[in-house]
Amino acid sequence: MKNKLLLLPFLFILFTVNAQDNGKISETKKDQKNAILLNFGSLGLGLGYARSFTDHLSVRVQGSYLNIHQKRDGVKLNDRLIDVDANFKSMNYEALLDYTPFKKSSFKLVSGVSHISTKGSAILIPAGEVKYGDIVIPKDKVGEINTSADWAGIASYAGIGFGRAVPKHKLGFGFEMGGYFLKKPNFIFDATKMLTPNEEQEKESHEIQNWLNKFTFLPSIMFHINYKL
């Protein structure tokens, strides 16, 4: 059912574009306007192309990319210091339909589909010396915990915002907020050497996996600067 719902925005776009092609081409051709856009927001920085078909409808094709890497040593968690090497990477391509219901307002409703690839990962290593009794355990014997959650695939998107995809003037600005409806993530929990029991425990409990499975909605905030061609 969810997969079918994901197809709806596509069908909507296709239907709309197809409708333009079937009869009103001569009237709307002069209204067709194109723009390129630069977007940035919670899913990173990206570029896109927009084309308006009517005063109310336009289509955007855009992509964005985000890569955040953070390494922090000696993060105190409970009683232990942990070195954390975390990475968040997101890359998505999407086709969005902007519907601007009011002629005098740039308020818009946005819908579309996105191929989204979002992966969060972290490597955790006990910081500093690990001791057992008076024995100092060499770092290479301690091991590490590798965790990652990977949301990849087609996601539907819905949002609201302000700003036309193809601005009335040469330059325009836009803002929108919405969210992606994701599948359950692919979760990996891999622990090595002395930390291996954590992997065994997670396999038994699925505690983290179950928690992450709740995250099927990815909120998004995006700004864009549009340049009319």
Binding site: S42, I68, Q70, L77, N78, D79, R80, I82, V84, A86, N87, F88, G120, S121, A122, L124, I145, T147, S148, A149, F189, I208, W211, L212, K214, F215, L218, P219
Partner: peptide
């Protein structure tokens, strides 16, 4: 030894989710 960790720290780093 046991300790708490915050699993999937990256989720927090991005700040996208609250739970």
């Amino acid at each position: 030894k046991k300790l708490f960790i915050i699993p999937i720290l990256t989720v927090l780093l991005t700040g996208f989710f609250t739970n």
